[in-house]
């Protein structure tokens, strides 16, 4: 029983990390239909900027704030200078731009920062919490709480604010949104900025567990993307559920099946779920316009 509980704790830890990364994909997708493959680099920038600010003697909370602002700026710049000029290009071309951006940001990070691994101190110490014979780090709960808060905020934003409605309107039909007076460019700007900020927050919260380096983004983006798709792209709740599910599957298969094939099991289950539910768990059905 303690063994199972430990596997579940591990699944929660890893799943919360994926969920936090996956959340970053949803808003950009909602506003512009783009899968942003540079999302992992936002996570990296959040963690790495905080680390280097802290190394330069900036107090940690301030360093984290600067990291979020810097990353938000990068997200905004990505939209203004790369996505916006290519508006009207095919969705594959736009995805390719975000992949280019991810290579670019990684390339810049290895020059501006370095190529070593770094860590941040956990918020509530490194001593694990014992429960029922299993152990979990307080930081895992912090990551989980972070994901929960972001989901609630996103939900409130979309449901309760005019800006949120505008994002949905832009996603549904850009032209129609513009006709009713929505500044769609500003809306997409906004969605990139917020997604970047979410990425940065994710980077700062998970670094005490995962450690960070200039190339930490690639795999996180991969898992985050898979989680977002499993949950149904565009749904914040789906992103979190997808993330937790993948984390849980990985931990349980590492525990009960084979640790070498845990990633394989996770992707196999994603394949099966998608074949059974082609829109993911919480995705909306899109009608193809003829």
């Amino acid at each position: 029983m303690a063994e199972l509980l430990q596997f579940v704790f591990s699944g929660l830890t890893v799943g919360a990390i994926y969920a936090l990364v996956a959340l970053g994909f949803t808003l950009i997708y909602n506003a512009s239909d783009i899968i942003n493959f540079a999302q992992g680099e936002f996570v990296m920038l959040g963690g790495m900027t905080t680390v280097f600010m802290a190394l330069a003697g900036v107090p940690l909370p301030l360093a984290a704030l600067i990291a979020i602002i810097v990353t938000t700026g990068v997200g905004l710049a990505l939209h203004r200078f790369a996505i916006e000029p290519a508006r009207g290009a095919s969705s594959v071309a736009l995805i390719m731009i975000t992949i280019g951006a991810s290579v670019f940001l990684r390339g810049v990070a290895q020059v501006v920062f370095d190529k070593r691994f770094h860590s941040l101190p956990p918020l509530f110490g490194a001593d694990s919490i014992q429960f029922g014979g299993a152990a979990i780090l307080p930081q895992s709960l912090v990551v989980l709480a972070g994901a929960t808060v972001i989901v609630i905020l996103l939900w409130l934003f979309v449901e309760r604010t005019l800006l949120g409605k505008a994002v949905i309107a832009t996603a549904a039909n850009r032209l129609a949104a513009r006709l009713i007076g929505v500044d769609t460019r500003r809306i997409v700007d906004f969605s990139f900025a917020v997604s970047a900020a979410i990425g940065a927050i994710a980077g700062i919260l998970i670094t005490p567990i995962t450690l960070t380096s200039y190339d930490v983004g690639t795999l996180l983006a991969l898992k985050g993307f898979a989680a977002a798709m499993l949950g149904g792209i565009g749904s914040p709740l789906g992103a979190v559920v997808g993330g937790l599910l993948i984390g849980m599957i990985e931990a349980l298969s590492a525990g009960y099946l084979s640790s070498s094939y845990k990633d394989a099991v996770a992707f196999l289950i994603i394949l099966v779920v998608l074949v059974a539910m082609p829109q993911g768990l919480f995705g909306r059905v899109k009608v193809e316009r003829v």
Partner: peptide, 9 residues
């Protein structure tokens, strides 16, 4: 690396 990414973009 940075240039490669930039050129693709």
């Amino acid at each position: 690396q940075a240039l490669l990414g930039l050129i693709v973009m």
